[in-house]
Structure formats: C-alpha cells, structure tokens
C-alpha cells in the first residue's frame, strides 16, 4: 500500500493561496526530501498534512495508507502514525516532558487497543530511546521545550519520534540552526529508524543534512508546487547552483 499520496493539493491561509496544485507520492521505506526557497510553502504543506486548523484545503486529495487524510482530525492522524517534527517546537510551561509523552503514548496505544503504560513501563521505553538521541532523561522533568536551546528542542522532537515510532515521519527544517553534532544525532535517528514499513519526508533549505541521510528522491518546491523531482544528485545541483535556475525555468514556463 502506498504510504502517502498527495494529488493536486490546493491550500490557503488567511485567504492567501499557498499550495497551488501539489503532487507527491511516497512509498513505504522511502526517504524523500523537499527543498525549496523560503516562502515556497514547505512548512504549509507539513502543517496542512498534520491537520492544522488555520489552513484551509481548497482542493485536492490526500491518501495516507488507504485513508483519506484530510477527513481525519489532527489527533487521529497522529494516532495512525503520522508524525510532524516541528520547525519551531512549541513551549508548554507547566506540562513536563514526562506528562506530555505519557499522554501521547497512551492516547496512541489506547487507539490501537493496547494497554496504557504506567510511569515505570514508560521509563523503560524512554531509557532505551534516550541513548539514540543522547538525551538526559532528567530533562523530561522540565516543562516541554521551555528554556531549551534551539538545538535541544530539535533533539526533543527526535526523541518523541523515536518513542512514538510513527509510520510517516515529516521533519520540517529539522536542520536549521543545528551544529554538526546535533545534525549527526538527527541523521542517526532517521537512519536507525529507517525500515521497509516507515517513510520519511525531510523538508530542508540546505543540502547539509543530506551528507548524512541519503534520500531516495529529492523534490524542488517553488510557489506552492513540486516543480522538479529527481535523485540525490538534484540536491547537489541545488547546492552548487542555488535556486535561481529553477526560478528562471518557472518564469519561462509561465
């Protein structure tokens, strides 16, 4: 079964059209990468697919593992294994990382008819996953993302992804503002979790992360559409030549 199929997706926010007929197909086990200049709509795509209420879908179809994704509420998508690592992870004062993950893990388990895990069981899971992302478990006592540096926040996102073991992982600019060590942690998480049942969509502005994660496909997004797709060599071309040539091509088409 196809993991994710986006067909002619049109979406707007606050009355402005952002996505203008986007197509994308991802098969299980594949890693895709979307690159594109700032403002081309990459984050919008990730949020529309996650079910953010601020975005209005004007047209198109999204099928996620045989289900009509756009008919599902945000929490239902998550429970079915759709995961978005946020470009700007939200701070939640007063809710500890532990409480947050406990609520999340158990909501998802319950949905699948599994027993809820108590604090002890959860700690077991956390301990194992913490190693993967080099996370200090004590940090889970602190409020979610509050007072964490940009890099630490991204690490928290990777930890959540490792714990929740989603089917479809979408990473929105996970690499922005990361130093080389943090970048390697992200890459290590994605590579370790790579499996025939899981797909990953990496959204990025730079080619840097792709030195550590080898994508199966690279897409270029421009003005709300995928305008070019190819293998990983496309990323190198973008790195070397910038987005200018895409822009020129687009203008010629218009």
């Amino acid at each position: 079964m196809t993991m994710l199929e986006v067909k002619d997706l049109h979406a707007s926010v606050a009355g402005t059209k952002i996505l203008k007929g986007l197509d994308l197909t991802i098969q299980p086990g594949e890693i895709h990468c979307i690159m594109g200049p700032n403002g081309s709509g990459k984050s919008t795509l990730s949020r529309v697919l996650a079910g953010h209420e601020d975005y209005e879908v004007n047209d198109g179809l999204v099928t996620y593992r045989g289900m009509s994704l756009l008919d599902m509420e945000a929490h239902e998508r998550a429970r079915e294994g759709y995961f978005l690592a946020f470009q700007y992870p939200v701070e939640i004062p007063g809710v500890s990382g532990m409480q947050f993950l406990r609520a999340s893990v158990n909501a998802i388990r319950k949905h699948h008819g599994l027993e809820e895990l108590d604090a002890m069981d959860l700690m077991g899971v956390f301990r194992e996953k913490a190693k993967l992302v080099d996370l200090d478990l004590n940090s889970l006592k602190r409020s979610v993302n509050e007072g964490f540096s940009g890099g630490e926040k991204k690490r928290n996102e990777m930890f959540q992804m490792a714990v929740l073991e989603p089917r479809m992982c979408v990473l929105d600019e996970i690499d922005s503002g990361l130093d080389i060590d943090a970048l390697k942690i992200v890459a290590n998480t994605v590579n370790t979790m790579r499996s025939p049942e899981r797909s990953t969509l990496i959204i990025t502005h730079y080619q840097r992360l792709l030195e550590y994660i080898v994508p199966d496909y690279v897409h270029v997004m421009f003005d709300g559409r995928i305008v070019k797709s190819g293998g990983k060599e496309l990323a190198h071309k973008l790195e070397a030549e910038g987005y200018g040539w895409i822009e020129q091509n687009e203008q010629m088409v218009v």
Partner: peptide, 26 residues
C-alpha cells in the same frame, strides 16, 4: 495557547484531553 493545543493534538492527544492538560499546567 492554540499552538500548544495543536502540538498536543499532533501527538495523538484529543482536543478535550489537550485542553485539560493545559488547564492543569496553568
């Protein structure tokens, strides 16, 4: 905080439970 609500929902927590969690946090 609507962003916090969406963050929780995007992790599988339904709206009512997410709201309760944020109220408790407050």
């Amino acid at each position: 905080d609507r962003d916090a609500l969406f963050y929780l929902q995007s992790r599988g927590v339904d709206e009512v439970a997410a709201r309760d969690l944020l109220l408790f946090a407050f």
